[in-house]
């Protein structure tokens, strides 16, 4: 787990969030049947409720926590993908969205490469990485994230656009 860049209290929360997310995700998976989906946003919020008392003792606000939890969510997803890969012995790839283009013209990218690109983004600009974690990996809407970050939605979108072009560039290399 990439806890090296976190202060000890946050690292602790990160670890707790990771475990909790994993636990809830597993429970959700057991409940859901094959066609259902798991709401990752709900997972992150539930984790907040569950870990609240603990978080308060280390003096961490909700915004900060959600950012950490979103990152933990990314880790949960990536780890899960990794295990899937180990099981299937093939690379798992994600098809990029293709609203306008036909399905054939859409490149597929490797989820592990996305993970690597995210690590590079973290090194470049932690805030951009946080926006991606919140939006992409825990599925929060822009207005929610904007409120959390305390900036206008329009500014947030600008950040998101920068992060997105970075990831696309990294993934297309």
């Amino acid at each position: 787990m990439p806890t090296h860049s976190l202060d000890p209290a946050s690292a602790d929360v990160y670890a707790a969030a990771y475990d909790e997310l994993l636990r809830i995700a597993r429970r959700e998976r057991r409940k859901a049947n094959a066609s259902a989906t798991v709401n990752t946003t709900a997972l992150v919020h539930e984790t907040w409720l569950k870990l609240r008392s603990h978080i308060e003792t280390v003096d961490l606000d909700r915004t900060h926590f959600l950012a950490i939890a979103a990152r933990a969510m990314r880790q949960v997803l990536i780890d899960h993908a990794r295990r899937g890969i180990a099981r299937k012995r093939e690379h798992l790839s994600v098809t990029l969205d293709h609203a306008d283009d036909g399905p054939d013209s859409t490149p597929a990218f490797d989820i592990l490469e996305l993970d690597a690109a995210m690590r590079r983004l973290e090194g470049l600009d932690a805030r951009l990485a946080r926006v991606v974690d919140l939006h992409v990996f825990s599925g929060m809407e822009f207005h929610e994230i904007a409120t959390l970050e305390g900036i206008p939605e329009r500014s947030l979108f600008r950040l998101w656009r920068n992060a997105r072009v970075f990831l696309l560039a990294e993934l297309s290399s």
């Binding site: 998976r29 899960h80 899937g84 969205d97 992409v136 696309l168």
Partner: peptide
């Protein structure tokens, strides 16, 4: 790249929700 309209968020969202479920479908 920006103009292509490719949305990482959307495709990851699909994957994200599906991924957690596929353990039992191996």
């Amino acid at each position: 790249l920006d103009a292509c309209g490719q949305s990482i968020a959307h495709s990851v969202a699909q994957w994200r929700e599906r991924l957690l479920l596929d353990a039992d479908q191996t």
